[in-house]
Design a protein around this nucleic acid. Structure first.
Lengths: 228, 228
DNA sequence: ACCTGAACACCGTTCAAGT
DNA sequence: ACCTGAACACCGTTCAAGT
């Protein structure tokens, strides 16, 4: 039944526009040239169409960014994570988000700019379940996930800013952090003793390890709060 | 000696431009009409000059935003906080930053976008000192402040996003959060049980209290890490 | 030294007109 | 139903020209 002319007229031409194709092209553009690389003109050129065509499928640039972000987050959060303990699961999920934002820095700011929307909800849900399993009482669950999410977003945002800044100056991340470290160690010793003392370790740090330190701090804190 | 023509020629006319005046006008603009309200045209109109004039004093819009951010952060971090214990001091400093970002939402994103620069360093230094007093060993100090900072930035960013979104839709924060809560409680029960269960508490929450929950989680975690 | 304001090279978004 | 592409109302930034 679904063949011949009838099917043909319902089907999209292979190269026609669709929200999915637009989102995929956006991701490619964002990954290759950063947040400011995503323009309707560049996008429509890549899709061999006019800028106006995109508006038939997507309401605004903001929506487009959120949709692109959601595509990445959905992939990341749908990956199976079956670790032994709830804490290990939370760690694994947090790390997965860290890696996703590291690979797609623009996801960090996109997530922040879409509070309460689908991408955030995916993360909230996925982290919330093991949190419940941890035994955090109902009244404390919101504040606890919220804190974990904020931390993940915070680190993600700073990571994105670091890579963005580095790229802007034509350096790689390591060189950029080394430069910051140098500036820090030349600060006034009376005004900035702590920053100076920590400068060298900052440039030598492993982002992923540091990220987990924060997660563990919070997970340990959950234990304390529960009187363990 | 410093009078008459000589002084006059060195002195600025009272209404002449200066980095300080530009930054103050920028803050006013940012507070009243948000991040997208800060344009060189609006700014130069407010300062009764041309757009080009500003570039004599400030290198770029990015620098301007960072300078405005730094003015707020400097004020916030220079306020005296003499609490009994190091933990209480960290709490008070974190809360001061929370309140500053709450009053000036744009500071959140500006801070994130200026990694390793002066505004961040001020916060780093101020929180680092009590952290050292807490007895956190040298090797762990960077990762620990870094985690606290990331959390503060993360919460600040989300707060900024919430107020921005609310403003965009012509709602106040409370109404905006209520709307989000409603959407959440209508999500699919099989796919989003946790989000649904937490929806009501989310809209009823007190941002400041939730913020402190996260800080305390981390401070408690520091205790655990040190074997206390 | 500092300011003016037109001009340049962009944006997101809209919309009449096409197929 | 979907696409085209010119046009609108903006941006940040530059720069010759002024004082």
């Amino acid at each position: 039944m679904r063949q011949g002319k009838k099917a043909r007229s319902t089907q999209r031409r292979e190269d026609s526009l669709s929200p999915d194709r637009i989102v995929e092209a956006s991701i490619a553009l964002l990954d290759s040239s950063g947040e400011k690389g995503l323009t309707f003109r560049a996008l429509s050129e890549r899709l061999a169409t006019g800028p106006g065509a995109i508006y038939w499928h997507i309401a605004s640039k903001n929506d487009l960014l959120t949709a692109a972000c959601d595509a990445i987050v959905a992939r990341t959060m749908s990956a199976p994570v079956d670790d032994a303990t709830p804490k290990a699961t939370i760690r694994a999920l947090a790390l997965a988000m860290f890696d996703a934002i590291d690979a797609h820095p623009w996801v960090g700011s996109a997530l922040t700019r879409a509070p309460g929307q689908l991408p955030m909800v995916r993360v909230l849900e996925r982290i919330g379940q093991p949190l419940r399993a941890l035994g955090v009482p109902d009244e404390e669950q919101w504040a606890t996930v919220s804190a974990l999410l904020s931390y993940i977003l915070g680190v993600g945002g700073q990571n994105a800013a670091n890579t963005h800044f580095a790229r802007e100056q034509g350096l790689d991340r390591t060189n950029f952090l080394n430069e910051v470290s140098t500036v820090w160690s030349q600060l006034d010793p009376d005004e900035y003793p702590f920053t100076r003392s920590v400068a060298r370790r900052m440039s030598a740090h492993d982002d992923r390890v540091d990220f987990l330190v924060g997660i563990d701090l919070m997970l340990d804190g959950i234990g304390v709060a529960r009187g363990r």
